[in-house]
Design a binder for these strands. Structure first.
Length: 668
RNA sequence: GCCUGGGUAGCUCAGCUGGUAGAGCAGCGCAUUCGUAAUGCGCAGGUCAGGGGUUCGAGUCCCCUCCCAGGCUCCA
């Protein structure tokens, strides 16, 4: 599974087996350990996955006697289980086959899952040789003691821990529920092995994790595996190589891409678009350097809080310099350069600012996670009474821009004040309420992540769903409650008093690089016409048509289209194929008939049949209109079911209208 | 950083238990001039990631290093 930026929901069903699955639905107890496993029925997919994880654990214990079991929760589309193998052994890919084989034997035996309930002491002795299980039981016992007095279940103290047994010698601490028999399983696939730390902490022992997927039927499994392949096919790194857009030279270093001519062109188009949208919406461009004295980042607090993500220092003439991990300190310096009046607010500073962040080598992932990135970054300084309005229009602005790219499905996450925070509770409430109200106005669905905000700011993350349903985080908005104080920012109000401005951080695309990756994957490389390096490929049938081909190119050029003429020294079919594979929006063929009547034969991307004898002028106007409307060839409404011979200028939506909808999945 | 899997021609890959490197595509040359997803022939291209070791002999076995991918963790 390509997991780029996709945050799978990690349910930890197994860490609190104390909440057993009474089928009376009474499991609405206080949530202690994060997201609950949803209520499950035996048919429920999560039950199948979790039971499959158990069978996997059983197989592993069979094959590696003495293996220690950690946890085996359900995750999005599947499950995993963590083990510690005897003698520090590790799984290899080949082991997956053996485990798979053993699992299928267990399934064939139709072993029943038998639920047992034990006291803490009994459980301790049953799992005496399972250190991780003991740790879990221990935690449960502590929790039990803490919540004991108000527990609702009368028998809770006597049977606080549940376990499931199947076969003669396999028992696992587990809340359940499970399917009744292993024979109800079987539509699974073990996917990969991975190292994972106990409780996700790299200071704790590293365990061996196996990921798998399981489904209720063979069709569902096949379907899922097909989706995995589709995701792989859309991988932006693959597309980037195929389309000759960018690469990551090892000579430069991990996470530092170079953009080839076509990739840089697309990038420039994205940046130009962002810039013009901002300038048209009341933002002022600024420009700041890539590096600054470390003292600046001390003052901003980055060296205190963010040093782990910063490049190491450079020394120059006795002073220590750092590459900037964020643009905000520099934008603040612009604000603070002179006294500001309330008349200047809101002041919206915008920069395509390139920042550098240290990411550990293991987390780098194509353009989605790099060590040098360009943010379409803005910092907005405003007064208290402007805050809500600014945030509302900001969210609307962000959504409008994202929709221009044919992205249609959004949701958001509002992260509120964490336990450790700076500033006044009152300010946090004002800022958080302002963000919430902006979300309410926007109409997009959101959820609140209590206590998940940064220590200095409540934040609002906007996610989008791509054509195959994956979620990507793009935009982030934060109301900063720290930096204005740290830099002692102020403005003079109408009352002639100094006031502290509010400061909003905001990256719209997130980063240009990541957004590029999202678009490539969303469109599987078949970008909307305005973003394609070659918009029209012109193919003369024979040499004799090259002069006319050049005229067609010229006409297109006048309309601002990017064209490529592919001369006739290869067979037509070969040339067509090449440009189809390159996802060129329009491939036009010009031959005898076209030369005499000034027409072209048009192959629209995504279309099945070419349209012959399309008037040249009408064709150029149509494509130019499509560029202006920022739409794709696939967007065109079918005018006449069996290919109407001419239909020019089907769409004239102005730029930035946001009305352009893309079917998104239209590419095959 | 840690775990797992990789690194053979620009790309995708083959190369069995060690015997001295191969295909398709791409590239280049020549021919082909063709109305909608691969024209033919030819040529060139590799210190098999790098270094060390075992061996008569290493792409194949062992060790170290580098790089890439999938995870863990973190976020844009």
């Amino acid at each position: 599974m390509a997991r780029l930026g996709v945050r799978g929901d990690r349910r930890t069903a197994e860490v609190d087996p104390i909440r057993h699955d009474d089928s009376d639905g009474s499991d609405q107890t206080v949530q202690v350990t994060g997201p609950r496993a949803r209520r499950s029925t035996p048919e429920d997919i999560d039950t199948i996955r979790h039971s499959t994880a158990h069978v996997m654990a059983q197989a592993v214990v069979d094959l590696w006697p003495g293996a220690h079991l950690a946890i085996g929760p359900v995750v999005e589309d599947g499950f995993y289980y963590d083990f510690e193998l005897p003698g520090g052994a590790r799984f290899t890919d080949d082991d997956l086959g053996r485990i798979d084989e053993r699992m299928r034997e267990i399934i064939a035996e139709g072993q029943p899952f038998v639920r047992e309930e034990h006291t803490v002491d009994e459980a301790m002795s049953i799992f005496a040789d399972q250190p991780f299980k003991l740790e879990i039981i221990d935690a449960l016992a502590g929790e039990q003691a803490a919540t004991g007095p108000q527990r609702s279940s009368p028998s809770a103290s006597s049977i606080p821990v549940s376990a499931y047994r199947n076969g003669d010698n396999f028992v696992d601490l587990c809340r359940g529920p499970h399917v009744e028999s292993t024979s109800q399983l079987g539509h699974f696939r073990l996917l990969r092995v991975a190292g994972a730390y106990w409780r996700g902490d790299e200071h704790l022992p590293q365990l061996q994790r196996i990921y798998g997927t399981a489904w209720e039927s063979e069709e569902a499994l096949k379907d899922y595996l097909g989706r995995l392949e589709e995701a792989e096919r859309r991988d932006h790194r693959r597309i980037g190589a195929d389309m000759d857009l960018f690469h990551f030279p090892p000579e430069i270093g991990g996470g530092l891409p170079v953009f080839h001519p076509k990739g840089a062109l697309i990038r420039t188009l994205l940046e130009d678009f962002s810039r013009s949208e901002h300038l048209g919406s009341g933002y002022q461009p600024v420009w700041t350097p890539h590096t600054a004295k470390a003292t600046l980042f001390e003052k901003s607090g980055h060296l205190q809080w963010y040093a782990d993500n910063m490049y190491p220092p450079m020394e120059m003439e006795g002073a220590e310099y750092r590459l900037k991990p964020m643009n905000c300190p520099m934008h603040i310096l612009i604000y603070a350069n002179r006294q500001r009046s309330y008349r200047e607010l809101p002041m919206r500073l915008f920069e395509l600012g390139t920042v550098y962040r240290f990411e550990r080598s293991g987390v780098l992932h194509g353009l989605a996670r790099v060590r040098g990135l360009t943010q379409d970054d803005a910092h907005i300084f405003c007064s208290a009474d402007q805050l809500v309005g600014e945030l509302e229009s900001l969210v609307a602005f962000v959504l409008r821009v994202l929709r221009t790219f044919g992205l249609t499905e959004f949701d958001a996450e509002l992260s509120t004040r964490p336990e450790k925070f700076v500033g006044e509770v009152e300010d946090w409430d004002i800022a958080t309420d302002a963000l919430r109200s902006a979300l309410d106005v926007s109409g997009i669905p959101y959820k609140v992540a209590e206590g998940e905000g940064a220590f200095y700011a409540p934040k609002l993350d906007i996610h989008l769903r791509d054509a195959i349903g994956r979620r990507w985080q793009v935009s982030t908005l934060q109301v900063d409650l720290q930096l204005p104080q740290r830099f002692d920012l102020s403005y003079v109000g109408a009352d002639n008093e100094r006031h502290r401005p509010y400061m909003i951080h905001r990256a719209l695309f997130g980063s240009v690089e990541r957004f590029f990756a999202v678009l490539l994957e969303h469109y599987a490389g078949a970008l909307p016409t305005w973003l394609m390096p070659t918009q029209v490929a012109i193919l003369p049938v024979r040499d004799a048509h090259e002069v006319y081909g050049a005229e067609v190119a010229e006409e297109c050029g006048y309309a601002g289209l990017r064209v490529e003429v592919d001369s006739a020294d290869e067979p037509l079919g070969t040339r067509i194929r090449r440009h189809k594979l390159a996802k060129v929006p329009y491939i036009v063929v010009v031959g005898d008939e076209d030369m005499t009547s000034r027409t072209v034969g048009v192959n629209r991307r995504g279309g099945s049949k070419p349209e012959r004898a399309v008037d040249l002028g009408a064709f150029v106007a149509m494509v130019a209109g499509e560029v202006l409307g920022r739409s794709s060839p696939e967007d065109v409404v079918v005018l006449s079911p069996d290919h109407g011979p001419r239909e020019a200028g089907q769409r004239g939506a102005g730029p930035g209208q946001g009305g352009v909808t893309s079917s998104g999945g239209a590419t095959r």
